[in-house]
Each structure stands twice: as structure tokens, then as C-alpha cells.
Design a protein around this nucleic acid. Sequence first.
RNA 1: CGGGAUGGGUGCGUGACCGUGGUGGUCGGCAUGUCCGAUCAGCGAGGAAAGUCCGGGCUCCGCAUGGCAGGAUGGUCGUUAACUGCGACCGGGGGUAACCCCAGGGAAAGUGCCACAGAAAGUAUACUGCCGUCCGGCACGAGAGUGUGGCGGUGAGGGUGAAAUGGUGAGGUAAGAGCUCACCGGCCGGCUGGUGACAGUCGGCGCAUGGCAAACCCCAUCUGGAGCAAGACCGUAUAGAGGAUUCCUUCGGGAGCGUGUCGCCUGCACGCAGUUCCUCGGGUAGGUCGCACGAGGCUGUCGGCAACGGCAGUCCCAGAAGAAUGGUCACGACUCGUCGAUGGCGAGAUACAGAACCCGGCUUACAGCCCAUCCCGACAC
RNA 2: GUGGGUGUAGCUCAGCUGGUUAGAGUGCCGGUUUGUGGUACCGGAAGUCGGGGGUUCAAGUCCCCUCACCCACC
Length: 135
Amino acid sequence: MVPPATGEPATSAPAVASRNERFRKADRLLKRSEFLRVQRRGRRFTTPHLVVLSIESLTGRTRVGITASKKIGNAPTRNRVKRRFREIFRQNKAAWPEATDIVIIARSASVAAAYNTLQDDLLAWAERAKRGTSK
RNA sequence: CGGGAUGGGUGCGUGACCGUGGUGGUCGGCAUGUCCGAUCAGCGAGGAAAGUCCGGGCUCCGCAUGGCAGGAUGGUCGUUAACUGCGACCGGGGGUAACCCCAGGGAAAGUGCCACAGAAAGUAUACUGCCGUCCGGCACGAGAGUGUGGCGGUGAGGGUGAAAUGGUGAGGUAAGAGCUCACCGGCCGGCUGGUGACAGUCGGCGCAUGGCAAACCCCAUCUGGAGCAAGACCGUAUAGAGGAUUCCUUCGGGAGCGUGUCGCCUGCACGCAGUUCCUCGGGUAGGUCGCACGAGGCUGUCGGCAACGGCAGUCCCAGAAGAAUGGUCACGACUCGUCGAUGGCGAGAUACAGAACCCGGCUUACAGCCCAUCCCGACAC
RNA sequence: GUGGGUGUAGCUCAGCUGGUUAGAGUGCCGGUUUGUGGUACCGGAAGUCGGGGGUUCAAGUCCCCUCACCCACC
């Protein structure tokens, strides 16, 4: 993994720009301890469909983790919700704030919600988060 | 054509773009690694992957021996690695039928229970009764006799109940009764057929033995315990406290103590002055293997009624770990709604549901579609 | 993965070793008391015993299957 200090903006920026719809393991939160860090100290944003928690990343990358608990449905339902959130994250990478760990917690209303509704909710959060960090 | 029974199959398709998890190859990077990146090839959820109700493989517990306890199963024969599965058959029950259902051993080994009702609920009894050629009973009566009591015979009728001492009919008798007879049922024994459950038949017994073992129990058979968080290795981390260490010896061993995989005993193994063993406590960060060729799938053929098995050919078919199959679009099926209806428009995670060590079953959930065989009824020929 | 528990009036719970009325509290409805309401008193209704099948003369209770929910441990 590339250390945060040696970001190499001149050489790697065009490559990243052409590949900005990728979503690999480096873009995800993988450990329970990472989830707990965000959930304990992060800032909270709530809509009827979801809860977003975010905190400044330690790795210099923007990473996301999605929680879909047993409360919202059975295994295929939870898988589908997680895949849709992942797809939204992947296709709108430019919108997210930089170097932030994000946890998205799905609420039960998100099961029946349309794809675009969920996308609008997340973009609204991203708008607010970017303004907050720029000020 | 209508209604029904049984068994089986399918579980959206094609294409484009953007992504994703393993596997293999090639190339590149530097922090030379089980690393990161690029690229190519190929693979990537189910019939139930589910529930976890059974059974096995596999792994560990030193071995998995014997017994008790506990648990499971329960017609017969087969099938299988094994089973509470499956197949065929037997017996019983239901249905007009196809077909479906049944934990379906033992009640003369013992214990227990059978409420209410009823005389009596199990080894005997006699409530209401019936009968008497007996007591020359007692009362009434002129008497015949009637009533009543005792004694004896009987166990048929009535009523109760889920169940009442085999059932129906005839004979018989004082009244009756398997007391006798016929038929049906039952029990015992023989013979025949069948591997067997059992069936058929002959003879005997007038019948001795009510039901409940999904009540305890008895009999037969099976059964050691835990589970891939099994288990092995690498790494990380920490704080200690308490206890045990004995005898005999012919040096082969024996006794004793401690420890051990759910309960116990037996048996077995290890340790018994080594910087050893045991118990309690404290503590850490995760990774690699196990882990994808298997009781494997498909096709053909042979044996078998079948479950299933043998042989030959062919194929390689998910391996994640906050956990991979998704998103968008086009065309076409399909379903639903609606309308100006051989069509148009709109809606649709298309149903149920997501591998987590692996198999064999069972059970449950399921939009819609398809196939086969059979039964009943109506009509026509 | 393993083990255990619960399901009975609207709600919270009883219901024993099967036995003939499935009860209690609370809530609900009606009446009495009060000027009215509450309280108090009297009366009443209300249960597929989670679902299906079986054993039994008889099942909330025994057996099997199944559904939903909850808990514990590794």
C-alpha cells in the first residue's frame, strides 16, 4: 500500500482518475476494531433509510464499511442492501470527502427504498461533509 | 370434457458496458513478501445452499476393551459407509376407485391406572329380576291361593358405561346358561406354501386370558465423548499463587499416589527429585494449513420388481472470512393491472431464498410453467 | 456449532402424576352509589390452549412433526 506522505499526485493521479469506479479491499473497512472506531468517535448523519458515521482516516484513503443487521431481513435481503450501497459508493467516488472512514448502517426502510432515493441521501451527506471539512 | 390420485422436471434467456472473489500464466514496482499493481485465460450459490431433525466421513481426546447407568430403535426381508432413511412384501385402518395412513415386539413376569355412571371395571360380585317338585315358615283367606321372608337354582332380561364374562339363530329347561348344535370369531396343536412377517388347511378345546406399555416395566438390537471455534504450525502477550513427589524389588517388575475425553466402576496410558508434573489465576494481534478429486457428476450397459449395485467411457464443477455473483441499458419470454383489445401502455429484488469442513437422508418455504402414469363420472362413436 | 426455554381471554400469568366447569388479576361491557367523574359494590361477555398428525374411552396435559420468539456457551 502506498504511504500517505508519498501520494505522488503527478504520476498516479491520471491512473486513479481513469480507474475511479473500482472498489477493492483497500477501499473497505475489514476489521471489527475499525468499525468500532468509527461508530464510537464518528460524526453522525441520519435519514429514514440509513445512518452514516464518519471520521478522519488513519490510512489516508477514503474507506467504507456497510452494516446490515439481522433486524432488516434475512440473508438475501441484507446482501442486496449491502450491494446497492457499495454500488452507490463505487459510482460516485468523486463526491466523497477525502481520507475519511465511513460506516453506513442500513435501516429497515432501506429494503423497500428505490436505488435513486438511497443515492440522493448519500450525496446529500457528502455535500454537507465536504462543506464541513473545507470550512 | 369435468373432478381426483401419484411420481418427476424446470426455477428467466441473449447481448453490451462498469465492477467483484478465488485459481493458473505473463509482465512491472520496491519496503523482496503468504506484498502491491497491470494484463490474459478459465471458474464462481441452491433445489431447497434453509431448519439443524437423524446418519456417516474427517479430526482430537494415549487405546476405544468389558460392565453398570443413561439414550435410541421396534412387523418381515432387503438396500447402504450409516441411518429414525429408502425399496418390496405382510398385517391393520380409511376411500366408490386410483391410492393414502399406521412407534405395527411382549398385557398367563410383576407393579400401577380405568374419572362419572353402574350391582360389579377384574376375580370376582348379584341391584332390579326369573324359577323351585324345599322349609307342610309367617300374614290374610272358608278354600283354591295370594303376599312376604328364609334356603336353593340361574347368570339369560333391564339399566350404566368407551369397555360388562365371545356374537347370531335354533334346540333344551322349573327357569336358564356353550348346557347342546349350526355358522362366524378366538385359543392350542399338526400339515402345506413362503428366506421370513404370514397365509391356507385339518384336528382339538365350548372359550380358560377386558383395555392401557406414545404408564412404569420386560425382551431384542444398536450406542465411548466432543466437534473444523475439531485439530496442527508460526507469531504476539503476560503476574503469579498453591500442591505433588512414596514404598518393595530376584532390576523383569509390583504396590501406592497424582493426572485423564460427559456419569460411575474396571481396564489402560503417562509421571513420581526433573531446573519435572498437576491445579488455579493472569495475559495476547493475528496469520498459515486443515480447504476443495469426492461414499463426486454425467452418459451408456449389465444384474435386480425396486431401493440399489457392478462395469466401461467421459468431465473437473465456488472456496469467502464485516464474508465474492452486483449495477445500468437493449431485445425477447413470463405474470399482474388497465385500455379504444389477433394489439397497445404501465408495473415486476420476477417465487422461496445466499455456500462457510464435506457427504447421505428427512422436514419446511416456494411465482409461474412443463411432462408421464393411473382412477372416478358424464357424453359421443 | 452446541445446549436450553416460552407460546393458554385484549395484556400478565395459573392449570399437579391425562378425568368432564380451562381459572386468577388487570382491562372491556352493563347496572347501583354520586349533581358529574373517579373510587367502591354487583352482574356479564370474552380463549382455534401457536399449527398439523397420532396414542387413548377421554389430550391444554403423553408421543412425533412443524412454525414463531427468546436465552446461554464455545
